[in-house]
Amino acid sequence: MVTPSELFRYAIHKFRHLLRGNGGTEELEINRMSLPRKLLLEAAMIMVAVVYVVPFYWMVLKATRISILANFPPDLNPFSRTSFNNFINNFHQVWSFGNFPTWYFNSILVSSVVVTTSVMVGAMAGYAFARLKFRGRNILFYVVLGTLMIPFPVILIASYVFMVDIGWINSYQGLILPQIASAVNVFLMRQYFLTIPSEIEDAAKIDGLRPWQIFYRISAPLAKPAFAASAIYTFIGSWNNFLWPLLEAQTVNYWTLPLALNFFKGANGTQIYWNQMMMADILALIPTFIIYMIFERYFIQGISLTGTKG
């Protein structure tokens, strides 16, 4: 019998391994490998990386061009003086376009509130399920895992109707609240808390800490990697969320960046201003990119758990 919960348990199992990072099969290759083979493999890796970088490179390139048409022969240097001036110019155009600063602000607001609350709610519940004894613990935990079985479309339409009914269309709470409850965060946190030796908490009880003090003084500080992992992918998920804001934010004042990007696509009638669209893409990418650069390790740990992406 394999249920989603087992699938996730399995994923966590892998995830834990990554957390400790003790090398697996990759290590033994290195000593034995002949130089030509190594070079061949490296060339293959570089080729794959190039394939993945090209679209992004082109995005940057287009954002440093002023003309809407392709030059011939194409100028492939995004770092020239003119490129830089164009870049700044494009930035001004995008930034002053419509309510771009508002959309940016909305995205930052929504994502940061979603991340803090979702991770906190997940950590609290995850801790209770991992460490505290209470009536109905197992059943309630299965209820939480069961939410993973409900596909998003089923929730989507009714949530939308519900928001219409209570008048929360076009509101921050309408954008934020449905994104907070995350069974995956609860599950990740619970698994991580389970790896902390329970004797540490016993010692804390003897030292006079009450259950909630054990949670925030002892266990939560020890679960930093789990906090980081779930914060990062919750952030990315929320920052890039498109479908929910699309239904929820029907006036431009409540748009988030993905809606803005989509809007840019058709903003200028039939004429496509690639430079502005790509500039907007870049602006939307910057926060996730920075976070990715800083926390790449945790991000990858988190991804091996979450599985699906928008």
Partner: peptide, 13 residues
């Protein structure tokens, strides 16, 4: 990189 990029931005690219 695609894993951190929003589906909308990717689609536009």
């Amino acid at each position: 990189l695609p894993a951190i990029t929003s589906s909308v931005a990717l689609s536009i690219i």
